[in-house]
Amino acid sequence: MKRYLLSDPASEDATPTRVPIDSRVGIYRLGDGSKTIVAETEGQRVDLAVRDATVSRKTDGRPPVELSPISRGISVRNHGSTNPVSLSTNLRTHTLTAGDAAAITDDCRLTVGISLTLQATVEREGSQRSPAAEQAGGVSPAAHARTLANALRAASTDSVAESRSVVAELRSFLDSHQLDSSEHEAVQRRVEQIERRLESKAGGLHHTEELDEEWQAELTALSDRIEGLYARASS
């Protein structure tokens, strides 16, 4: 089972930040006056690219909101946020006041403060289906986008040929799932550019079968951007 958070930055031009939930993850505002919101794991502190003075700071070394991996998915606990923490699914919205906790077993929107919104996702092993099967089964565009984004992340570490195949699927998906936003148009152009560059890499003078770390980082950033775009559109 994979669990992670995907940030929803305030700027449409910003790239969403992906934070794995492999251990406890604390969400809080830095106390340096910058209003910076971070996600803190055991090994690092990640800037979520959001500034919000309404998100609480740490108290006695403990973050106001904490997420932890559990057997069913993700546990979310409000340790003492002065503003309520909201969990939203397609069916309902649940508010956690100080001291409350809840379990996330599927996709969920997590809102802390006024402008900090995170996408919490639980992926079970073997649960992914092909894009064609997802479309036939009536899966939402956001879920379809997430499947393709995950496929591209994996393909980037596999081969140029596999990456080309997934990018072609992404281009078709973007063409058939139009969004009325400048960000969607920008992503479409970016995918087309990358597709042409991959074609050149596969058959040009600098032919290689694998992608280097710079390419992998670029495709991962594109995956995060597409996943975040459709996650925001579905909320």
Rank of each mutant, 00 (worst) to 15 (best):
Q178Y: 11
T36M: 15
R124C: 00
R29I: 11
G113R: 00
G138N: 04
S234G: 00
R124W: 10
S234E: 14
S34K: 12
R232A: 10
S200N: 15
T121C: 10
L219W: 12
G228L: 07
D180R: 13
E66D: 01
T82G: 12
R225M: 05
C108R: 00
D175R: 13
E227K: 03
L211Q: 11
I226M: 15
L179C: 12
S115H: 06
E192D: 15
S223M: 07
P64D: 03
Q128F: 00
T82C: 00
A231R: 07
E209Q: 13
A10V: 13
R225K: 14
S176C: 01
L30Y: 03
Q44K: 15
S165I: 01
A132M: 01
R24Y: 12
S71F: 02
A14G: 04
Y4Q: 04
E12F: 11
S140T: 14
L5P: 03
D224C: 01
T121G: 00
E195L: 12
L198I: 02
V112K: 03
A231N: 09
T111G: 09
A161S: 14
V122R: 03
L179E: 05
E183I: 01
A120N: 08
S176K: 12
V19Q: 01
I27P: 03
C108P: 02
A142Y: 07
L179S: 02
H94T: 15
L30P: 02
S71T: 15
E125Q: 11
S68Y: 02
I114S: 13
P20H: 13
S172L: 13
V187Q: 06
T208D: 15
D107N: 10
A49T: 11
F173R: 05
R189N: 15
A101Q: 14
G80E: 02
S181H: 04
A217T: 08
Q44C: 05
T111D: 09
R232S: 09
L219D: 05
G204Y: 11
D158M: 08
N78C: 08
I74Q: 04
H79K: 04
S156D: 03
E169F: 03
Q128K: 08
L87Y: 07
G228F: 07
V76K: 03
L229W: 07
V55K: 05
R197K: 15
R190L: 12
T105D: 12
L96I: 09
G99D: 06
F173L: 06
S71Q: 13
G80K: 07
S88A: 14
P63H: 09
G33T: 12
E162L: 13
